[in-house]
Simulated scan of single mutants.
Amino acid sequence: MIKRPLVAVALTAALAVGAAACGGTTKNSSGSDNSGNAATSGKKADPNAPLKKGLKLAFLPKQVNNPYETIVDNAGIAGAKEFGGTAKEVGPSDASASSQISYLNTLIQQRQDAILIAANDPNAVCGPLKQAMSRKIAVVAYDSDAAKECRDVFINQASSEEIGRSEIKVMSDLVGGKGKIAILSATANATNQNTWIEFMKEELKKPEYSGIQLVKVAYGDDDDQKSFQQTQGLLQAYPDLKGIIAPTTVGIAAAARYIDSSKYKGKVAVSGLGTPNQMRKFVKDGTVKKFELWDPANLGYLASYAAAAIASGQITGAQGETFKAGKLGSRTIGKDGEVILGPPTVFDSSNIDNYHF
């Protein structure tokens, strides 16, 4: 795993989603606390309450066959064992907007103590999540947020603004500050992807990036083959393309694999978000010079402890509350119930062999 610790940053980016877009009711839908998170209304925290034993947690990733999501969830499951709980991973094999709903309904029927979800769509899952909360089930969004009124807290891997802007900075360095670039995203409705992309577009407005032109945002739906085909399509449509940013572990690996075996190797830069183990080959052979990520295991671990703290009554999700997250230490809840893991790490040939995940 990552050898040096990640330091939490205060910079946050909240994606505002209207309450009217979702069905169902909150535990107290008529009120709101001073954090703006309706989910915490009417609840009081007892920071001295012990973590309950025997808590049942369920992780619902975007898709169960995603290697990144597997790392996150397995670490969360292991974390639950530390505080005497049990956890499992369930979910769909595709990342479509509605694919998580049936699993949510089942988890509610099973009376889980906490549901942890990486939302494929912030609104599509809102109804069943509100139903879960009305039944005193803690709801933690991680990696990709649900609408804020439909969960207690959101565990964000890093500041959304920092991720988006740093992706442009890395790509600008790779293409020498000029040329056409494209973005290969996951699904069109993914909260995290869309937030990062908006900050990428904002960053591109700065004068120092005037030589860079974003020509297209393509979607590979977090599917390896479709992402591979989308990469091919981008280069057919824009043969003078200079770089591809893929802020998804599935997308960056597929794009690198295509470039690696094509005439574009050494001519088209590939960057984005990937795990060191999946990208090591492409860094070693020069296909990918730089990419970013955080420690996904720590993300799942932090989410697990946050869920336990909510289910035990230590926190409600209100801004300013704190909780202890095992080996990661004390964490503070920010605006809109957001907890940030830490800043992203840039991986390249000089440090990639120091990381193994």
Rank of each mutant, 00 (worst) to 15 (best):
I71Q: 06
I71T: 15
I71P: 01
V72F: 09
D73A: 09
D73F: 03
N74K: 10
N74I: 03
A75K: 01
A75E: 05
G76T: 01
I77P: 02
I77A: 02
I77M: 08
I77C: 05
A78L: 02
A78E: 09
G79Q: 05
G79C: 14
G79P: 03
G79D: 00
G79K: 02
A80Q: 02
A80K: 02
A80S: 14
A80G: 08
K81Y: 01
E82P: 04
E82S: 04
F83I: 06
F83H: 01
G84Y: 12
G84C: 13
G84M: 08
G85M: 09
T86R: 10
T86F: 07
T86C: 08
T86A: 14
A87Q: 09
A87P: 07
A87S: 14
E89F: 03
V90N: 07
V90M: 10
G91K: 02
G91N: 13
P92A: 14
P92S: 12
P92E: 08
P92R: 01
S93T: 14
S93R: 11
S93M: 04
D94V: 13
A95W: 10
A95E: 11
A95D: 07
A95P: 05
A95H: 02
A95Y: 04
A95R: 04
S96W: 05
S96D: 08
S96L: 13
S96F: 12
S96N: 13
S96H: 11
A97R: 11
A97I: 11
A97N: 15
S98P: 02
S98F: 05
S98R: 01
S99A: 14
S99C: 05
S99N: 13
Q100F: 08
Q100Y: 03
Q100E: 12
Q100S: 09
I101T: 12
I101D: 15
I101P: 07
I101H: 07
S102K: 07
S102H: 04
Y103D: 12
Y103R: 00
Y103M: 04
Y103F: 15
L104N: 00
N105K: 13
N105C: 03
N105G: 13
N105W: 00
T106K: 13
T106F: 00
L107Q: 14
L107T: 06
L107D: 09
L107N: 02
I108K: 07
I108C: 11
I108H: 08
Q109T: 14
Q109K: 07
Q109C: 03
